[in-house]
C-alpha cells in the first residue's frame, strides 16, 4: 500500500514536471536563441555558450522598434482607460438596476465579444477611412473597443453585482443620487476589479494583430505584434530569427512579470468573466 502510494506520488510529480517543461520550454528556447548570433544561432545546444546581445541592439537599430513599443503602450493604455470609463457606468446599470431588456443587452454584449473580428473588418475599414483615421493610433484605439468594451462591461457587471445591496440603500438614505452612489461609494470599492479587468483588457489589446495589421500602413505606426510579424531580413526568404526572438523576448518579459505578479487577480478575473452554466 505504501509503495503503491509512493509510485503514485512519483508519477504525479513526473506529470507536473512534463507539464511545466512543455509550457516553459518554448519561451526558454526563444531566450536562448535571442542570445546567439551569426552561425551560433544554428546550434541546438540547450544552454547558450557565451551569450551576445547583438540581436537586441539590431532590433532597435534596423527598425523603429522603440516607436512600435510606444505605439502599443499608447493604444493599449488608451483603449483600456476608455473601456473602463464607459463600462463602469454601464456595469452599474446592468448589474444593479432592473429594467426590461437587461438580459438581452447582456447577451448582445457577450455576443459582440465572441464575434469574429474579420466580420466587421470591411465595415470598420470603411468607417476608419471615412473618419480619416487610417494609419493612425486613434483608429486602432477606436477599433479595439469592439473587443475590450464588451469584455470590461461583462466582467465589471459581475463584480458590480457582488457589492452589498445595503450599501447602496445606505447611500440612498444619505441622499446620494445614482451618480454619486457610483462615483463616491462604489468606485472606491471597485479598484481591485478595475485593476484586474484593466489588466486583462490591456493584454488583449497589446496582443491584437488583425486590426493593427490592416489599419496601419507605415512602420512607424505599427504596434509590436505587427512589427514582430513583419520583421524582414536581408533576404526575403530567410527571416532574421535571432532578431525576431530578441524582439519577442523584449515585449514578453514585462508581460510575464506582470502576469505573475497579478496571478491571483487574473485567475479571478478570467473566471469571473466566464458565464456560469
Amino acid at each position: 500500500m505504501h509503495a503503491k502510494r509512493l509510485v503514485g506520488r512519483g508519477l504525479f510529480y513526473l506529470l507536473v514536471a512534463v507539464i511545466i517543461l512543455y509550457t516553459l520550454f518554448p519561451f526558454y528556447w526563444a531566450i536562448v536563441s535571442s542570445l546567439r548570433s551569426g552561425q551560433g544561432l544554428f546550434s541546438t545546444a540547450l544552454i547558450p555558450s557565451d551569450p551576445v546581445w547583438d540581436n537586441y541592439v539590431a532590433v532597435f537599430r534596423e527598425q523603429p522598434f522603440a516607436a512600435n513599443i510606444l505605439n502599443s503602450v499608447i493604444v493599449a493604455t488608451a483603449v483600456v482607460a476608455l473601456s473602463l470609463m464607459l463600462s463602469l457606468t454601464a456595469a452599474y446599470a446592468l448589474g444593479r438596476v432592473r429594467f426590461r431588456g437587461r438580459g438581452t443587452l447582456l447577451m448582445v454584449v457577450l455576443a459582440v465579444s465572441m464575434f469574429p473580428q474579420v466580420a466587421v473588418l470591411s465595415g470598420l475599414f470603411e468607417l476608419i477611412r471615412w473618419l480619416g483615421l487610417y494609419n493612425s493610433l486613434t483608429g486602432l484605439i477606436l477599433s479595439y473597443l469592439i473587443f475590450t468594451l464588451p469584455f470590461t462591461v461583462w466582467v465589471l457587471t459581475t463584480f458590480m453585482r457582488e457589492l452589498p445591496k445595503e450599501l447602496e440603500e445606505a447611500a440612498l438614505v444619505d441622499g446620494a443620487s445614482p451618480w454619486v452612489t457610483l462615483t463616491r461609494v462604489f468606485l472606491p470599492l471597485m479598484w481591485p476589479a478595475l485593476v484586474t479587468t484593466g489588466l486583462l483588457a490591456f493584454i488583449a489589446a497589446w496582443n491584437e494583430f488583425l486590426f493593427a495589421l490592416t489599419f496601419t500602413l507605415s512602420n512607424e505606426m505599427r504596434t509590436v505584434p505587427v512589427a514582430i510579424a513583419l520583421i524582414t531580413g536581408a533576404s526575403q526568404y530567410e527571416l532574421p530569427w535571432g532578431r525576431v526572438m530578441a524582439a519577442s523576448v523584449i515585449v514578453t518579459v514585462p508581460l510575464i512579470i506582470m502576469v505573475l505578479i497579478f496571478q491571483r487577480r487574473i485567475v479571478a478575473g478570467l473566471t469571473a468573466g466566464a458565464v456560469k452554466g
Binding site: 452589498p164 445595503e166 450599501l167 440603500e169 445606505a170 438614505v173 444619505d174 441622499g175
Partner: peptide, 15 residues
C-alpha cells in the same frame, strides 16, 4: 426618496 423623509436607518449589516 428616503433622504427627504426625515428618517435615518441602521442596517442589519451596518452598511
Amino acid at each position: 426618496p428616503p433622504s427627504e423623509r426625515g428618517i435615518a436607518m441602521v442596517f442589519q449589516s451596518y452598511a
